[in-house]
Amino acid sequence: MQLALFIIFGLLAVAGAVNFLLQRHPINSALSLVVVMMSLAVLYWSLGAEFLAAAQVIVYSGAIMVLFVFVVMLLNAGEEERTHGSRAAYIAGFPGAAAIFCLLSFVFLTNGKAFGSTDLTSHLTHAVNNIAEISQVLFKDLLLPFEVTSILILVAILGAVVLARKEQ
């Protein structure tokens, strides 16, 4: 079950990310990013993080990507054209990203034994409610940081309104 979920949604996430990279139109890139985020939500759930799976769907693919799609449509963004600068980025971009990927996966795979493996069944029979646990930490131990994030959101709202306002 866990293995099947991982294979299906991991492949879906990678396919969505590759499609995001290859599409030239911003709206197609945005929609394939939604696919990546939804499959990541399923992976969070398979790792025993139900609250984060719901928050991923609601916040990321619900709020942030809708904002992106709104801006793409508002600015009437068309297909991007190839320029000289982008060709230089092709030469530097693919080897750099491949080097980062090789380094990370080398570290992860050589230490793979130490990481162990997931076991959803034991996690669920443990009968720990994920949301109850998170709210205990979030509203008791980390109450001050949680309140500070509300101020951060307020400042972000004000900043967005001020920046996007038409200048007189």
């Binding site: 990310a17 320029t83 980062i100 990927f101 992860f108 230490n111 069944t121």
Partner: peptide, 28 residues
Amino acid sequence: SATVPISAYLVLAAVLFSIGVASFLIKR
């Protein structure tokens, strides 16, 4: 119940991160 090694999740995250880096550099 087949289990998935944690390193498989980490490698998947590395793949997504590298694709993000590549598209950050390539997209115009």
